[in-house]
């Protein structure tokens, strides 16, 4: 690539703000988090007592952490099935069978919840799930499933799943949209030839479509998994981790430990654990962007 400018002062002015902000507020906190996790400290006192790896040892024997990870994993699995799996099937059906205009309208409508804040959506569903004023139980009764009706968020057995389903309601539409672009990019003559070979719709989907959009699927899977491990807003807003800690996730547990129980050192250790998990998947995701190829291709 040809360089247009050689002015070093101007260069500094152009890159320093971005580099400094990303360095100081995105990268540095990660290191600081590791440092803070080695000390016992509270938010309102300057005292910091070095405890070494004590909190990490605690991480692995803490039942609350195990439950939180379980909840995060459940979040990830359900989201993978509904968003990356069902989302793909829905997108495929829309593209293959539906009237183009009607499909476009549907995609616009089902994306709406995804632009609204998790906080507003979460609170809406808190009311919807409420046994005395919401519509969830009322709908169940109307379709003859009244026996299932109960306090969805108040029951430790159903609370987590109820939160997870809200997230599916909110985000499947976005996934459908993401897949649609990938599906529309598949050249139609491939489908024609599959048809001539006598492949059924289902066979074509499995053996032609899926391999063609493999990279989109992989990307959507990593996005979904990262999202599932970062979950904070909707859980905090809907149950604050309750009832009895049943819906605690890593992020809410970190918040709870740090800002409610004022055990900042342990909260930092939870933050580091959260970092390791999300970083691993983000790393895979960034590999899928193919940065090297991008810069390499542009260099030559």
């Amino acid at each position: 690539m040809k360089a247009l400018y050689k002015n070093r002062t101007a260069l500094l002015v152009f890159i320093a703000p971005a580099v400094l902000m990303v360095g100081l507020l995105v990268f540095f906190p990660v290191l600081l988090n590791i440092y803070y996790s080695l000390f016992k400290w509270t938010a309102y006192s300057a005292d910091m007592k070095f405890v070494g790896l004590k909190y990490y040892a605690k991480l692995f024997s803490d039942d609350k952490i195990v439950l939180a990870i379980k909840n995060n994993v459940m979040y990830a699995v359900v989201s993978l099935i509904c968003q990356t799996g069902l989302g793909l099937i829905i997108a495929h059906l829309f593209v293959t069978f539906a009237n183009t205009r009607y499909a476009a309208i549907t995609r616009v409508v089902i994306f709406v919840p995804a632009v609204i804040s998790l906080t507003a959506i979460g609170l809406l569903w808190v009311i919807a799930y409420n046994p005395s004023l919401g519509y969830v139980n009322a709908i169940l009764e109307a379709i003859g499933l009244g026996s299932l009706a109960h306090d969805w968020l108040g029951d430790a057995k159903t609370a987590m799943m109820s939160i997870i389903m809200v997230s599916q309601w909110q985000y499947i539409g976005e996934m459908v949209l993401l897949y649609t672009v990938g599906l529309q990019a598949v050249p139609t003559d491939i489908y024609e030839s599959a048809k001539i070979d006598g492949a059924s719709n289902w066979q074509t989907f499995l053996h032609v479509t899926i391999p063609m959009i493999k990279s989109t699927i992989l990307m959507n899977m990593t996005i979904t998994i990262i999202g599932a491990f970062m979950v904070f807003d909707e859980v905090y807003v809907m149950t604050s981790g309750g009832p009895g800690g049943a819906t605690e996730t890593l992020a809410t547990l970190m918040y709870e430990t740090g800002f409610r129980k004022d055990n900042m050192g342990y909260a930092s250790a939870i933050g580091v654990l959260l970092f390791v998990i999300t970083f691993a998947f983000s790393f895979i995701q960034l590999r899928l962007y193919n940065v090297n190829e991008m810069m390499g291709g542009e260099k030559s």
């Binding site: 360089a3 247009l4 400018y5 050689k6 002015n7 101007a10 260069l11 152009f14 890159i15 971005a18 580099v19 990303v22 360095g23 995105v26 990268f27 540095f28 906190p29 990660v30 600081l32 988090n33 803070y36 990262i226 491990f229 970062m230 904070f232 992020a251 970190m254 918040y255 740090g258 900042m264 909260a267 930092s268 933050g271 580091v272 959260l274 970092f275 999300t278 970083f279 983000s282 790393f283 995701q285 960034l286 962007y289 940065v291 810069m295």
Partner: peptide, 28 residues
């Protein structure tokens, strides 16, 4: 557009910020 030796490093540095979830760094 600038002549810069560290072009690739700056590019990767800023881009890598995408890998770090904001939730992890609330406390620091």
């Amino acid at each position: 557009r600038f002549r810069m030796k560290a072009r690739y490093i700056v590019f990767i540095f800023i881009l890598s910020g995408m890998m770090l979830a904001p939730q992890c760094s609330l406390i620091p």
